[in-house]
Amino acid sequence: MTDRRLTPATERVALDSWRDRLQRPTYTPGRAARLAVPVADLCRAPDGARDRQVNFGADLLVIDETGPWAFVQAQADGYCGWLRAEALTGERPVITHRVATPATHVYPEPNLKTRELFGLSLGAGLAVTGFRDGFAALAGGGWVPAQHVTDQPARDPGAVAQSLLGTPYLWGGNSRWGIDCSGLAQAALTACAIACPGDSDMQQAAFPATDQIGRGDLLFWPGHVAMALDAERMIHATAYSMSVIIEPITDAIARIDAAGQGPFRGAHRPPPPQPGAGFP
């Protein structure tokens, strides 16, 4: 059985590479595109429910289109869904940097007193062509504060997650404007060049279990994931507070069990950061 979230096919079109796995009326090699808006929902159907989000600069493969909607697969984690086609561009200059802070602004010129064009979230991919007056110039136009971008991965997923403290909870969210539990885990690990799937069940399957909880481990419940900051504390995006919070692990286990949302499924350990690997 295929997982619809990772299946690059609609009812009428599938990727060429899936010919031996899926029968469809037609197949396509797909069309490379890039997200050109700050953040976009990946929906289950055109104008349907949000599953996840993708951020500015995300490389996508367009598989099908209907009206104003495009069915795409995110190249970073394989997640599939529908988004508004107007959010895409065919221009794909080389991504050289990523946003390294929770959020930043894009300005029309290298001057912080000018009116910003739009905001970007942690992890947004940037094609930087040069630096001037403390700003990074973007290939498609616009300037980002230089101290907000990096071409090197972070070293501590826990620290990245902590930078998002207070971010509002949003089901399926992947940005500073709103994030959910698996979105927070993915953002923190991806910032450290650690490949991470998009949803908590995928994340639990992707990393090996561990009996001793340590910093950066992922802690799982049915439909929920948190990140350990040490053996006693964890950080997570939770509907309990509708935000990203830190709380004692034992308290969270008891609270979640009492709410009938358990049991605790244990800890899984992502690999350590590998400097330069798969980044930016």
Rank of each mutant, 00 (worst) to 15 (best):
A87Q: 01
P222L: 12
R84I: 12
L60S: 07
T89G: 11
A231Y: 02
A209D: 08
A49M: 05
D211G: 12
G141E: 07
F71G: 05
T10D: 04
G90F: 13
D59L: 07
P280S: 12
Y79M: 11
R34P: 03
H97Q: 10
D251W: 00
A100T: 05
P157D: 04
P68T: 07
A193Y: 07
A70I: 11
L15W: 02
G198I: 10
L35F: 00
L165M: 12
Y107D: 14
A74T: 13
P275H: 02
S175T: 15
G142S: 07
S243A: 15
G119T: 15
A258Q: 11
V149E: 04
A124Q: 01
G266M: 13
M234L: 15
A14F: 03
T96M: 09
A124M: 04
T238E: 02
L189M: 11
Q23R: 13
G223Q: 09
D230L: 03
V72D: 09
L112M: 12
G48M: 06
A254H: 01
F135A: 08
A259M: 13
H97N: 12
E91L: 12
A161C: 10
Q274S: 13
A188Q: 01
S241F: 03
G266S: 15
D151Y: 07
P46E: 10
T167D: 02
A58T: 15
W171C: 08
V94M: 13
V106S: 02
D47F: 06
G178N: 07
G81L: 14
A187L: 11
W82N: 08
G278P: 05
P275K: 01
F71Y: 09
T114M: 06
P248Q: 05
D211L: 12
G130I: 15
D133C: 09
R12Y: 07
